[in-house]
């Protein structure tokens, strides 16, 4: 018994070192910008850079739009599949897994080919069109996480009976989705939303190939041209991702109307 515990802790310690050492090293390096000692100078430089502010807020806006689009696509689909079309569930799951199998570069090349300036729908030719393509592409990238998250949430409630109860009380489909289903899977939707946020905020391939100046390309540019700032930027990006993960845990734990979880 004691031996098993020792090896468990050893495995955990090894895993923790494997993940944490590079991060600690990077963080330590990001503090060395001033010769006289440790400081947050690199962070100050990054945070006060107008390019950082612009690209970061732009990526945040894209992430929020992607979340809205993802929720609008995924929640009704997952709900309908659970309620009326359980037969097609394997197919939908397969489709939602495709973005994990097909590299983003393939998707973006497909977009460029289909929506280029000499096509019927020249979305790449203007700023709005490019943004629409970006949001659509990001929604596709986030699909595996968003769908799985929402589907798991739907599994925890009796979708069919709740729907019928609402119907017998006079509610139509839109009201059922908005007031019965969505609030009851909100925790799952938020989990999916935070994952989507984390993906979009640092995405590079789509943005670079569509020639958009978002946070991903900014980080790459910074990495190629500065010494200490890229490390600070990476730490910032990690902090944002971890904050998202923490928020998922938080909303799951403190969901108001669910039974306490242990």
């Amino acid at each position: 018994m004691k031996g098993t515990r020792f090896w468990s802790w050893t495995a955990i310690a090894f895993g923790a070192l494997y993940f944490l050492l590079p991060l600690v090293g990077m963080f330590e390096f990001s503090l060395r910008m001033k010769r006289e000692g440790y400081s947050f100078e690199a962070y100050r430089v990054v945070l006060s850079d107008p390019q950082f502010q612009m690209t970061f807020s732009y990526s945040v806006a894209l992430a929020l739009l992607t979340i809205v689009l993802g929720v609008l696509i995924v929640v009704p689909t997952a709900y309908w599949v659970r309620l009326r079309l359980p037969v097609v569930r394997p197919l939908i799951e397969f489709i939602t897994l495709m973005p994990l199998v097909i590299p983003p570069i393939v998707i973006v090349f497909g977009y460029i080919r289909v929506y280029n300036t000499s096509s019927i729908l020249p979305l790449t030719g203007n700023w709005w069109g490019t943004n629409v393509l970006l949001v659509f592409g990001y929604a596709t990238l986030a699909l595996p996480y968003m769908y799985r998250s929402v589907d798991t949430g739907l599994r925890t409630i009796d979708v069919a009976t709740l729907t019928e109860a609402a119907q017998s009380l006079g509610a139509g489909w839109a009201r059922i989705l908005a007031t019965v289903i969505l609030p009851n899977v909100l925790v799952s939707v938020l989990s999916g939303a935070f994952l989507t946020f984390a993906i979009v905020i640092g995405e590079y391939v789509f943005a670079a190939l569509l020639n958009v100046n978002s946070f991903g390309p900014y980080m790459v540019w910074m990495g190629g041209n500065r010494a200490y700032e890229p490390s600070a930027l990476a730490v910032i990006a990690f902090t944002i991702t971890w904050a998202c993960m923490g928020l998922i845990q938080l909303v799951t734990r403190f969901s108001k109307f669910s039974t306490p979880r242990r």
């Binding site: 009976t161 019928e164 109860a165 017998s168 009851n184 909100l186």
Partner: peptide, 12 residues
């Protein structure tokens, strides 16, 4: 009006 075996109260 319908009452179900599983209560079907809206949890939220």
């Amino acid at each position: 009006g319908m009452v179900f075996q599983a209560y079907a109260l809206f949890p939220n």
